[in-house]
Design a protein around this nucleic acid. Structure first.
Length: 296
DNA sequence: GCACAAGCACATCTTACGTCA
DNA sequence: TATGACGTAAGATGTGCTTGT
């Protein structure tokens, strides 16, 4: 039995899954919501009056979302049961990647820049923004688009960072919910739809994945902490029980000949063992010496 | 096998924005 | 109320790795 726990980024440690992108879609996850760690920014971005359902992050430890960083924690069933977490099944959210792609370079995007008359946006987000702040943001975004066509060094001004409008962010979030990586066509389509450069969309998705992973790491840490606490308690309890049994054995040697009244489960192999004096029988027919189970 | 391009993760920088004294 | 310091979120950039051609 191969146990592998990780705090953070140790993808190499999980030899069971060399290529996470080929993992089955039955992975478990620790929903952030359960841990009260749902992204604050997400909450901020999604207006409470927004009729759309709240965006739920499927932060899958093993989804293709973060292809090199599968979180293995919830592959350990006894850990889940130990801390009382009922893992949620999730569906694959990123099943498609088109093999043939068209040109998606930013140069290509420049053709459909916001200032291009040939652009055919499906949604005019500059119109959708109803407040002056958003308008300012859009104007700054257009400055960004202008910067795309003219070098920063050209005007010598410091770059002005754009802030995506609520609508743009919500739209990107929705897209992210559907697929956390973009193929070039999707990237282009999103960029056109949102009046952004493809590079911006790409960067947004990269950052989003990174922050999702960061949050997932937080969740994993919390999860491991709880596991550790639970196991420590269990260890204490078992040590105490062992001491009592030893004391009993020395004081009442004949008592131990009686059959045990409790069943114990080996946490490593999950086999139920009936303990009697001097013998241990498992309820499974397979060898109990495998999988790290130590016969006592 | 090598070169190249594309895409990604990751670390980091930079800027906008909210909070608080 | 205005303001400056501070922290945080998020957009942007650079770098190295992987993968496909």
């Amino acid at each position: 039995m191969e146990l592998a726990l990780s705090l953070g980024d140790t993808p190499k440690a999980f030899s069971l899954f060399e290529n996470p992108t080929k993992l089955p879609n039955k992975s478990f996850c620790i929903p952030l919501e359960e841990h009260g760690l749902a992204e604050k920014s997400l909450d901020q971005k999604i207006d409470s009056s927004d009729p759309r359902p709240p965006i739920q992050l499927n932060l899958l430890p093993s989804t293709p979302v973060l292809r090199s960083q599968p979180s293995p924690l919830l592959r350990i069933p006894w850990l889940n049961s130990a801390i009382g977490v009922e893992p949620a099944r999730v569906s694959d959210v990123n099943q498609f990647r088109l093999a043939s792609v068209e040109d998606t370079t930013d140069e290509g995007a420049a053709v459909s820049s916001p200032n291009s008359a040939a652009s055919y946006y499906q949604m005019d987000f500059s119109i959708m923004n109803g407040n002056g702040d958003a308008e300012a943001r859009n104007s700054s975004r257009e400055e960004g688009a202008d910067r795309n066509t003219s070098d920063d060094e050209e005007n010598g001004s410091t770059r002005k960072k754009l802030r995506l409008s609520k609508e743009q962010s919500a739209f990107l979030e929705d897209s992210f919910k559907e697929h956390t990586t973009l193929n070039p066509k999707q990237k282009l389509a999103l960029a056109k739809q949102l009046n952004l450069r493809p590079r911006q969309v790409e960067v947004w998705f990269q950052n989003r994945r990174a922050r999702t992973k960061s949050k997932q790491t937080e969740v994993d840490c919390e999860y491991l902490k709880r596991c550790c606490e639970t196991l420590t308690e269990e260890n204490k309890r078992l040590q105490k029980e062992l001491q009592e049994l030893r004391a009993l054995k020395t004081s009442q040697p004949f008592y131990m000949q009686l059959p045990a009244t409790t069943l114990t489960m080996c946490p490593s192999c999950e086999r139920v063992a009936t303990n009697t004096t001097g013998t241990t029988t498992t309820k499974q027919t397979t060898s109990i010496t495998t999988g790290g189970h130590r016969q006592q």
